[in-house]
Nucleic acid binder design. Sequence first.
DNA 1: GTAGGGATACACT
DNA 2: GTGTATCCCTACT
Length: 181
Amino acid sequence: MAPELLGKILFHKRRGVETSGRIVEVEAYLGDEDPASHAYRGPTSRNQVMFGPPGFAYVYFTYGSHFCVNVVTEKEGRAGAVLIRALEPLQGMTAQKRRRRRQKLTDLASGPGKLTQALGIGRKENGLDLSGKDLFLEDDGFECNTKPRRTPRIGIRQARSKLYRFVVKDSPYLSMKGKLR
DNA sequence: GTAGGGATACACT
DNA sequence: GTGTATCCCTACT
């Protein structure tokens, strides 16, 4: 599911402002076999959306200041989600720049915490249907000219050897450029 | 390189 | 209930 999401569009309309971006970086998180996953220790009030039906948004708050958005991928009762890590901004650039207080397009959504800020995604979006009116994923037929590249996931300690991160190779909108973690 | 920040999980009383 | 280590990060120096 994770590489399938590369090239698709994430759209969010908040207070009449429409913003969107094309997905260029994702990470897969499994359930009870994946110690890096929030769902590893079973359902809790925080991660319950991950155990719900697929096609819904799991939004969580982390590091005291950031939201991250995931796409739930498994059938109800089974945990699994794809973290959206970076977007190429498409619509509503003015709003995205204002929310991010940044002007460069490569600084708007080039990280999981940045893209939620740029698109105005937060607590209220947790558990929403990703085929909704104001929040949805879209396939506009775009095809990447390169195959998805697989790498280790970013910012985790457990299960680092798993190649569960997928990126559009050479996109200027990827996260963590110039840093190794 | 590191400060900042809040939620969470788990070990303890 | 309290203490604390950790966390799917970002912005600054």
